[in-house]
Design a protein around this nucleic acid. Structure first.
Lengths: 253, 253
DNA sequence: GAGTGGTCTAGACCACAGA
DNA sequence: CTGTGGTCTAGACCACTCG
């Protein structure tokens, strides 16, 4: 067959991947090869592959070739991931780690923890000073199976966190949420605001994405029983790497 | 200045739009014009504009020109009722809620209602027969200010819906949820599973999108107090047209 | 150095909308 | 009929990786 457009070429290759012709993690044929096989110019193949790269299905290793993305999407279930049982399963340090336990993925994270200034809109939520180092910032960049999958930046008021394990590198079993609870700041509700946008250059660099792909940008606010916001966390997740799930009560009337 | 790559051209145009040089709804200069102005070939401008189209910032009217997308993103707050008690508290919540209030948009919807077969995975959730017309299907395509913004397809078991206003074109004040409550099937919790993907050709056609853009694909399940799923609704939303918000309780321990 | 994908220019033809 | 964006081919040069 001789596809007449780059969308058809993309469909052919997408189908070939779905059929298992090119398993996850393997190299695709070169663009020249595909061009001659499909009877089109390389520019057309390049345009078709760009679609699949933007979808997150393919991934380029410069100078090497084009690879089928190694990891299928992971489910992030907001309803269950924050239960204590979930967070402490396998002695792990937080919600993400617990999710990956099920999949037998190895989690590896690079953290930067210390006092810092909160962004203005986050300072407003937490009710802290935006112009001084009023929060502990926990910046975490995480990989599963050596594939970057998430950036998480947490902001906790220093009035709460100073002198506690929350300000330390290792917050202990169950993560920050467990420590907040022990300190009398248990979060009873979480609020999440999310949108989809292109990654910034920095985010793209760490996540191994291009700026033409998409990330979820999730702002999570932790509320206590007495209606105080005690933690704000921003999650940056590649859309092709995650499915999200929520469960919430409604007024039955 | 003379941008050296199509990403720079895209950045220049994105910035020009952000600066108000090209207001929402107006036509951009032609590709030829931009090419000569920026000192690059039209193919480069075309590639740059494609990025902005994929982001949903631009929209082509064939044979006419390229227009800046008319509507800014809308906030879809999954727990509006639930969050109402908290509305006074300041910060981001108030700011985003304020944006919602602006919407004096005119809504217009085309509906198709009747018995039908549920998709297999939805039949499994509802516990109905996937091989017969076991559900009432309510298919709604909605526009705001004449801009298509959402597709919603609801599935309700006929055992519940037959002979009630749920199977009628107009379900009455309060909609399906109120009727379900009156019939003894009040939903007390909603579960939503969402992912981001390219639209199908049909979805793209109605929503005025290309298949290189992205939609939220949201599966919403309505649960009763006795843990029965009484309604499943699938929402298809352009990602550039919506921000999403959730609020849910967590296990504080 | 050979092979990879990334990008740019150049020129061409097409379908579509509107005067 | 003219002007619009959509697309394809052609050929070139680049930065990168690996042997």
């Amino acid at each position: 067959m001789s596809p007449s457009s780059y969308h058809e070429v993309a469909d052919v290759i997408r189908a070939a991947i779905a059929d298992g012709l090119y398993p996850r993690g393997t190299l695709l044929p070169t663009e020249d090869r595909l061009a001659t096989d499909l009877g089109v110019h390389r520019a057309t193949v390049n345009k078709a592959l760009k679609i699949l790269k933007n979808e997150g299905l393919l991934h380029v290793e410069m100078g090497v070739g084009t690879r089928v993305h190694p990891l299928p999407p992971i489910l992030r279930n907001a309803a269950t991931r924050h239960s204590r049982a979930h967070r402490e399963r396998g002695g792990v340090r937080g919600a993400l780690a617990a999710e990956l336990v099920d999949l037998a993925y190895e989690l590896d994270s690079v953290n930067t923890i210390g006092p810092g200034r909160p962004p203005k809109h986050i300072a407003a939520i937490l009710g802290v000073d935006p112009d001084s180092d009023s929060v502990i910032v926990r910046h975490r960049r995480m990989r599963a199976q050596d594939v970057p999958i998430q950036i998480a930046i947490s902001y906790i008021p220093r009035a709460i966190a100073d002198g506690t394990p929350i300000a330390e590198r290792d917050p202990g079993i169950g993560g920050i949420s467990s420590r907040l609870a022990e300190l009398g700041h248990a979060q009873v509700e979480l609020e999440e605001q999310l949108r989809v946008r292109p990654p910034t250059r920095e985010e793209a660099a760490f996540l191994g994405m291009t700026v033409e792909q998409r990330v979820y940008d999730v702002i999570q606010i932790g509320w206590t029983a007495d209606e105080r916001a005690v933690k704000v966390t921003r999650y940056i997740l590649p859309t092709y790497q995650w499915d999200l799930a929520y469960r919430y009560p409604i007024d039955p009337a």
